[in-house]
């Protein structure tokens, strides 16, 4: 019985993997094929215009996967080179972005989790702060950028501020929600054992609310990683967002697609890291 179930589960995983590989191969094959087939005419004699362009395509096409793979190999084999302001390795660019995301995100956590705790514990604080949160939360983080640049007068710090402001809300609201939802029985256990408020907060409420808080942190890191690309396109200088925009200005679409893929991979790794941490605080009731 259980062996059958395991066998079926295995075969499901295997089948899913096979299907994923087939989809990948077909997708890449079509992409590659479309780009290699001549767009006009094929073997016919070149028109005057084509002769002028020495046989180049009239329209630039999206580079095929093989070119991107070659680019990826080249970039990833030397990710940390630094040959001047406009020519840095992908590792350095991602490093700048990660540095901004993580510093803005950690500052947001330091603010959001204590305030979320307060809001969750005190109905008064909740009612008083809720209108502000509801107005501030839907503001696109990039809308803050001009104001941040004006007040902070530093593009680097402004980018970090934008990350801070966008990652604060999910953490704040989830912490408040988790803390407010702590079962009364557990708080009563703390009370009957004469725990101080601080002990209750750390020994009962924090572990009880931790899974919800971690969910908020996971949502926040996802949003922060989405926002950093746009923020860096605006402030420029360094970072993966700036890299994408810079390669677009260079009309190097191979690098653009390669960096898009890298953004996806790093975002997935950030999410996996938080999912991994969440496993340690999850509990079953």
């Amino acid at each position: 019985m259980s062996r059958d179930a395991t066998a079926e589960k295995l075969s499901l995983n295997v089948r899913a993997a096979l299907l994923a590989i087939v989809l990948l191969v077909v997708g890449l094959g079509v992409w590659e094929g479309v780009n290699h087939s001549p767009l006009m005419g094929g073997n016919e004699t070149l028109s005057e215009y084509e002769q002028l362009l020495a046989g180049a395509d009239e329209r630039a096409s999206v580079p095929p996967p093989s070119e991107i793979a070659a680019k990826a190999w080249k970039e990833l084999s030397n990710p940390f080179y630094d040959a001047g302001p406009n020519d840095k390795g992908i590792g350095i660019q991602l490093g700048y972005s990660l540095y901004r995301v993580l510093s803005g995100y950690l500052m947001a956590a330091l603010v959001a989790i204590p305030i979320g705790f307060l809001i969750g514990m005190s109905p008064l604080a909740y009612k008083a702060l809720n209108p502000f949160i509801q107005v501030l939360r839907p503001i696109s983080p990039l809308a803050w950028m001009p104001l941040a640049l004006f007040i902070i007068r530093d593009s680097e710090a402004s980018a970090i501020f934008v990350i801070f402001i966008c990652s604060i809300w999910p953490m704040l609201l989830n912490t408040a929600f988790g803390v407010a939802g702590v079962r009364n029985d557990w708080v009563n256990v703390a009370r009957t054992h004469e725990l101080t408020s601080l002990q209750t907060a750390f020994k009962v409420i924090l572990p009880a609310a931790a899974p919800t808080i971690l969910t908020g942190m996971r949502i926040s890191i996802g949003i922060a990683w989405l926002v950093i690309v746009a923020a860096e396109m605006l402030v420029g200088g360094t970072g993966i967002g700036y890299y994408v925009w810079n390669e677009w200005n260079n009309l190097d679409l191979t690098s653009v697609i390669f960096s898009i893929l890298m953004i996806g991979v790093v975002g997935m790794l950030l999410d996996m890291a938080l999912a991994y941490i969440a496993r340690f605080v999850t509990y079953a009731e």
Binding site: D185, W186, N188, V189, R191, T192, H193, E194, K203, V204, P207, A208, A210, V281, Y283, A284, E285
Partner: peptide
Amino acid sequence: GPGLERGVVFQNYSLLPWLTALENVRF
């Protein structure tokens, strides 16, 4: 108010689910 000289056993056990049995008693 509540105090340690009065112990309570609730109907729904009120164990802290993130602690093991031993850790709950140790608590």
